[in-house]
Design a binder for these strands. Sequence first.
RNA 1: GAGCCAAUAGCUCAGCUGGUAGAGCAACGCCCUUUUAAGGCGUGGGUCGAAGGUUCGAAUCCUUCUUGGCUCACCA
Length: 497
Amino acid sequence: MQDKNDQVIARLAKLDKLREMGLNPYPHSFSRTHTSKELLQSKSDLLQSEEVVRFAGRVVRFNRKGKMCFMHLKDRFGRLQVVAAANMLQDDYEIVKLIDLGDFIGVEGSMMETQKGEFSVKASKITMLSKVIRPLPIPKEMIDADGNKTVFHEFKDIDTRYRKRYTDMALNDEVRDVFLKRSKIMQSIREYLISKDFIEVETPTLQPIYGGANARPFTTHHNAADMTLYLRVAPELYLKRCVVGGMEKVFEFSKNFRNEGMDRTHSPEFTGLEFYEAYADYNDMMVHFENIYERACIAANGSTKIQYQGKEIDFKAPWPRLTVNEAIEKYSGLKVEDLSDQEIQVELEKRNAKLDGIWTRGRAILELFEQTAEAHLIQPVFIKDMPKESTPLCKGHRDNPDLIEQFEPYANGWELGNAYTELNDPVRQRELLEEQVNRGRGGEDETHPMDENFLDAIESGLPPTGGVGFGIDRMVMLLTNQQTIRDVQLFPLMKSE
RNA sequence: GAGCCAAUAGCUCAGCUGGUAGAGCAACGCCCUUUUAAGGCGUGGGUCGAAGGUUCGAAUCCUUCUUGGCUCACCA
């Protein structure tokens, strides 16, 4: 190993000693009779029966007292004290002398209470399960009479914690909790969609043509086929092919990759969920969306209400629906319908906003919405009926030719997702995609490639369909009160040290 | 991409206007059979993020770089 400090050397010496004693410091398994949670649950029975239990975990506290030693072992459910006394353990007490903080050990013994009343395993046998050779900066904790926990010398260097997430998780319970909640959130989404008869599918991550979102892709190369491939920016175009194929209701948890900037809410790889339902429209999708969010919130927090950075947000369904124009009027008093293009531009200038690329009335209205309304959208709300310039994949509005049937759910001022009554008119679809290819990406030099195979699919018949896409990471951030996307991704990308 | 801030022992930090590196925890040795941040006595541990520069002398001042954080910009 690279850096050998005194502590590593001391642990390697203990490792040798264990081997000299004829012990395997890395045995193949250990059968537990109880986890820490199970021991606590059967506390009174076990104290009475003096049944022999087998318990294992990582040593997170150590208090040697001559020929006696108190340890706390931590498993995934919590920590529990082990009392290791020389007269009980006989030869095994030699092992106790070679234990360091961070080691995994297994104990066998009966349950007891110490003089201070702490429920503990009275060890009659100790087994080293994994000798750790690198010191773990395990903090000391003090719990006062009121049950408040104070942590001393906490492992908190942010950079190191992301780079060594295994250590971070082992030491900081709150970190592991976030990922437990993430798992519960994903599970609740999956259960909801499956209960509504959706089929979970997997579509390509490596794609010869990328699409479905206006984003810059990562590029890679397949050697044997000698072809350029892209990591997907969104699964949308493939999921629609599934609907064309008759699957009717499909969803996918999709790792998406976008070769753009990184900040508090953007990571180059992130998880999206998209689902599509044949014979449904965007109104049906709003119902699914608010149900999914409400259930996920309950799964993670046991309530529809959360605190996010001091703000209370209630995800209880149903959520209000506002059109873009209604939202602008609500928060600025401006009636967009009555304003000329000129007047809209004046309102934008008043707010120091400028439009990159080609000026169109629709894009200007969207910009005005962002300037006036977005920051106010703390409680969950659906913003719907965007100007038609917004996206080429959405169907026109049934009542207004200037609008499309798109909605974006908002909460905490964040755009949480994006959904449409999907465009299924193949002639119109081709026109819009060709326009996009010709236009390139709003003022930038890169163009969006034309996906002929996707158009062929739409030409082969997409039923009326509603679709939704949203970011799981941002959802987990909200529902676990985390401020940065790195805190909800297990192993976030870091630059090389 | 811009501005500001930070990087010192395994961990958490101190180190003033430049004088040759410090604490607590952890580690090592000894004592201790009911501890709870256990305690007592003793010992070792550092390329002060990296590279240059100024100076008799740099952790400290200057420059550049690296990594991270915050704010802003970009990004449907």
